[in-house]
Amino acid sequence: MRKQLRLSGSGGQGVITAAIILAEAAVSEGKQAVQSQSYGPEARGGASKSEVIIDDEKIYHPHVKTPDFVLAMTQKAADKYFHDLNPEGVLILDDDLVPQSPDFKNIIRVPITKLAVEKLGKALFANIVALGVIVKVTKLVDFDTIKKSVARRVPPHTVEQNMTALQLGFDAV
């Protein structure tokens, strides 16, 4: 069954890294996955978007057409990327960074960045908190699998904090 995700925000929030980790987790469970990304010329602050398609079959066209899940970490991203969501899909919003909910049926609001700052002292962990939320909501991969994928990707001395971040997101919904 094909599932399409779009993770969006601004450069520096780590949405591309989160998408890569999610795709890696899917591949390690034997699924097919493609991950693509688009971002502006700026390293920080410009619009940033990453897409993941997960399927049992081979994936050719790499673009997400009708996402089943959209994560938006800024108001601008939320306004721009909810339009083509599957009507039965889910829009996940950062509660503080997206003050106004777009007109959509299934919205889940989680204080993603706030949790990272309050519990771990850094907004840097927001993308991993978001990943915990995504795994809980989408059920696309096992929580154990995503833990292993996060541990493989992040710097060794940050593994413990990232595991906490993942758990925070997972428990927040």
Binding site: A23, Q32, A33, V34, S36, I59, P62
Partner: peptide, 9 residues
């Protein structure tokens, strides 16, 4: 860019 930046199995 499509293939260069694409990640897949």
């Amino acid at each position: 860019e499509i293939v260069g930046h694409l990640r897949e199995n």
